[in-house]
């Protein structure tokens, strides 16, 4: 079994173990975020932000920051290159998240009647999404065609950025993933009361004095943080799946907050780990493998829910 070998072989383990740690971090932060994304119907906004990551990656490439270093570089140099790349992508994602957030109508922002603001925001998100993808694709391609100096490593290709790579996840990425997961979960816990009020009923939350715009922006920035962490493993194209499917699964299986959280976390862990195993065994890109595993878990949840309903009707 390849998976066992990859994770236990002293020569291979340092390459493959970071992806497992990063995957667990992603599942941990994705569980609570996905519930809010599903309940607030923010999946399209998440998709816009994740595609913005591709634009950010393109800019980083154009600046010569690809996150990879030449053979023989010190661990510090490698970590610095990783962090610089992640920082640029993160800045691009956060700017996009804030821009998209400001375009979407909110209860606290006043006039919305007769302005068609929801439709305009939808269009604007679509524009950001496709523009980022096109921009990123062009820059990544231009950089890939450049003649490299001797010894300079090739930057990760378009496919790696789009669909992720197991071997592309370093211990630095895993450490960043764990740190981001702690920040995301901690912030969500800290803001749980206003967040839940806002998610349940935005207008009432604003009427009760909840700073709904701030709450929305915080959630979008957390989303951007999560996407930047996920993109190493699953790629920008499929990062949103990790911020939707675990929550959708949890909401299928329970109508209690604690139950939804538990099922969402379980779905995330099973989906990410299942996807990684599939990726290791079949030598596939981890992004599609993880997403298919998550879709499978969601399908099982739908089947269980449907079966329970039929049994209740019959009984």
């Amino acid at each position: 079994m390849k998976t066992w070998d990859y994770l236990t072989d002293p020569a291979l383990a340092p390459i493959y173990r970071p992806s497992v740690v990063a995957g667990l971090a992603v599942a941990l932060m994705g569980a609570p975020l996905a519930i809010l994304v599903v309940l607030k119907r923010l999946a399209f906004i998440g998709q816009g932000v994740s595609h913005a990551a591709f634009g950010g990656a393109g800019i980083a490439y154009a600046l010569g920051i690809t996150g990879v270093v030449a053979a023989g570089a010190t661990a510090g140099e490698a970590a610095g290159a990783r962090l610089a790349f992640t920082g640029i992508v993160l800045a691009f994602c956060i700017a996009s998240a804030i821009g998209i957030g400001r375009m979407t109508p909110g209860a606290e922002r006043g006039p919305s009647r007769a302005s068609g603001s929801a439709a305009r925001a939808d269009t604007a998100i679509a524009v950001v999404l496709v523009a980022s993808m096109a921009f990123g694709f062009l820059l990544v391609n231009v950089v890939a065609r450049r003649t490299r100096a001797p010894g300079q490593p090739a930057p990760p290709g378009v496919e790696t950025v789009l669909f992720g790579s197991v071997v592309g996840v370093s211990w630095v990425d895993a450490a960043v993933g764990v740190a981001v997961a702690l920040v995301v979960v901690g912030t969500l816990w800290w803001m749980r009361r206003p967040l839940l009020f806002w998610a349940l009923d935005e207008t009432s939350a604003a009427a009760f004095g909840v700073r709904t715009e701030r709450v929305k922006m915080v959630l979008l920035v957390l989303n951007a943080l999560a996407i930047v962490t996920i993109m190493r493993l699953a790629g920008v194209l499929l990062a949103t799946a990790l911020l939707v499917l675990p929550g959708a699964t949890g909401l299928r299986l329970s109508d209690r907050l604690s139950g939804v959280m538990a099922w969402s976390l379980a779905a995330g862990v099973v989906g990410v780990m299942g996807g990684l195993v599939l990726s290791f065994e079949a030598d596939l890109s981890p992004g599609p493998s993880i997403v298919l595993a998550l879709v499978g878990v969601y399908g099982v949840a739908c089947g269980v829910r449907g079966g329970t309903r039929r049994a209740m009707r019959a009984g």
Partner: peptide
């Protein structure tokens, strides 16, 4: 002020 919204503004299926 205690505000009571229209019922439709509540997110149906919210797990609370």
């Amino acid at each position: 002020i205690g505000y009571v919204p229209q019922r439709a503004e509540i997110e149906a299926g919210f797990p609370l």
